[in-house]
Design a binder for these strands. Structure first.
Lengths: 330, 330
DNA sequence: CTGAAAGCGCTTACAG
DNA sequence: CTGAAAGCGCTTACAG
């Protein structure tokens, strides 16, 4: 039989209000009373139920993170940042998966309407501006991560610049044809990276060629897998002539691409994207995104907005950084 | 002003009971009534609040996963399995972090007492049997993952066999001294792998030497980092004589170890542990653990126990498998 | 320092 | 097919 606040109150010979106070550390409760209640609660394995508590008090101290893909390395890195700031706050984090293929808006609305948390962190969701606007009506704190909107707090990357940086480096080294291992080309970050890629191309007056933009066939986890990169690189190595260099949209794919090159005993210079913790150890030249900071800052934005709903909107745009290691220097 | 069930009922000209029924799809509600309620709810952005609903109904449809480290690749792989089975069930997953350095029992008890979920998945917590026993009193479904207890459903690996398999392979190839890159030696899985390591050693009648069991200095994420592996391998390469081969307790560390070898231009055969998705692409010989299946099965166990609390306890012990790629064949 | 009582927003037999 | 009402387990002014 599960115990409730009445059981404890009766056994301790006090009112339920007193028991409640003991657990909320709120007003003063006589020390001896507090101890008695705590002892009895411990014996009976009692603690106030989360649901009842939140219904009665309105205080939640919880935030919810909505993400399309939980099981990838990018998310893993972001999460460290979120946990970094949360470890100092008495706030619970809930993580919920959003299915990108089923209309994200209804899923997000559903969650918000249930009022689960004090605020919501939308990570890499890349919803349309029109959809985001609909979220405004719920008047609930929302913070965007790896995404941008003028209407919400956001922390994003300048993906155009990232693409530009990588491809500009390659062209400066004298390579003429640069292939791009993309991924879903309906993904906003990918679109921006392609923009940067083309911008660099046009600066060097080389025509862009859509055939040089490739992806592998495996679309598990949105194609952010080693396998997809492996397949894409195979396609590239099958082109004739083989492109001079390649820009790869993620480090995870680059791991696969590297393997494809080594299997075919044909190395071409490659720069990828993300700078995961493994990248340093396998010599990937890559575009660094400060993922930890990003998770940290987006979460901090959310907490600030929960406390001060009227504060100015804060749009953080991080600049990428090119890190040269060995993969580009073959 | 947030809307509630009364607002909707009033506007629709029905009772709150009817509104509630519409959302619970339970008993029959006249189609025209249902539509009217749904339309109004949609206009007003209404959905029953999670907390109130759960307080009133006792149904939760939610499970909670307790893990010591969320941001590592091992967890990422496990999670895929959990999500795999959950995607077919109408069950919400909450993930909560347990701090291994602060006494896990109180943290776990605290969570269970709050009655958040219908059941709890304890992943890689490795609590003592005595501590686990204390959890029995809450009479709540609990399933263990990467852990074993005769008193709870569990899915675990035979780590002793894993260590044995790897080291036996190395010894059979004629290597005499085999170093072990460990990690926290108070970790149960590591202890078992050391047992397996020693068992293989004794079969080949080589004395075990505690000096050959090393770890790097960086203990971030419990030492399961590339950096820790890098440091550990440096120590090994500094030994004289340098050991003939090395058994490494995780693929992530092995990535660092590989780099240390290449930096020192000294290759020794290595077998590691986990078989992460990158491992195939970087040629790691490793012990395969079916992590997806593990996540899947442990979650399935939990769901079964929620539905049938009296069913027999199920202890799944997975056997490891040795996968030879290039890192052991230098 | 403590208690009686109203209220949080729902669900669900029960009755019709 | 629908409503009135009790109840879920808490918190929190209010009063003393």
């Amino acid at each position: 039989m599960p115990t409730n606040i009445y059981d404890i109150a009766k056994k301790a010979g006090v009112s339920i209000a007193t028991v409640s106070r003991v657990f909320n550390c709120a007003n003063s409760v006589k020390e001896s009373t507090r101890e008695k209640v705590l002892t009895i609660a411990d014996e009976m394995g009692y603690h106030p139920q989360a649901y009842a508590q939140r219904l009665a008090s309105k205080k939640k101290n919880s935030i919810m993170m909505l993400v399309p893909v939980m099981s990838n390395y990018f998310f893993t890195e972001i999460l460290k940042g979120t946990q970094g700031i949360l470890s100092n706050e008495n706030i619970e984090l809930n993580i919920v998966n959003i299915n990108q293929d089923q209309g994200m808006l209804p899923q997000v609305e559903q969650i918000i309407k249930r009022r689960w948390a004090d605020g919501y962190l939308l990570a890499s969701l890349h919803m349309k501006e029109k959809e985001l606007e609909k979220l405004k009506r719920y008047k609930v704190p929302i913070s965007l991560l790896d995404d941008y909107s003028p209407n919400f707090d956001s922390v994003s990357f300048n993906n155009t610049e990232g693409g530009y940086l990588a491809v500009n480096y390659l062209l400066k080294k004298g390579y003429k044809t640069v292939a791009f291992i993309a991924g879903r080309t309906d993904s906003i970050p990918i679109v921006h990276r392609i923009d940067g890629y083309k911008k660099a191309l046009s600066e060097f007056e080389v025509d862009s060629n859509e055939n040089l933009i490739v992806t592998g066939g495996s679309m598990e986890r949105d194609g952010f897998t080693e396998k997809n990169g492996y397949e894409a690189m195979q396609k590239i190595l099958n082109m004739s002539p083989v492109p001079d260099a390649v820009f790869c949209s993620s480090d995870v794919k680059a791991v696969g691409a590297l393997k494809a090159m080594s299997d075919r005993k044909k190395q071409i210079p490659m720069i990828s994207y993300d700078n995961l913790s493994i990248s340093e150890y396998i010599g990937l030249s890559t575009i660094h995104q400060p993922m930890y900071d990003m998770g940290y800052n987006a979460t901090r934005n959310l907490i600030t907005r929960i406390h001060q709903p009227k504060s100015d909107i804060c749009n953080d745009i991080h600049s990428p950084e090119l890190i040269i290691r060995t993969s580009s220097e073959v």
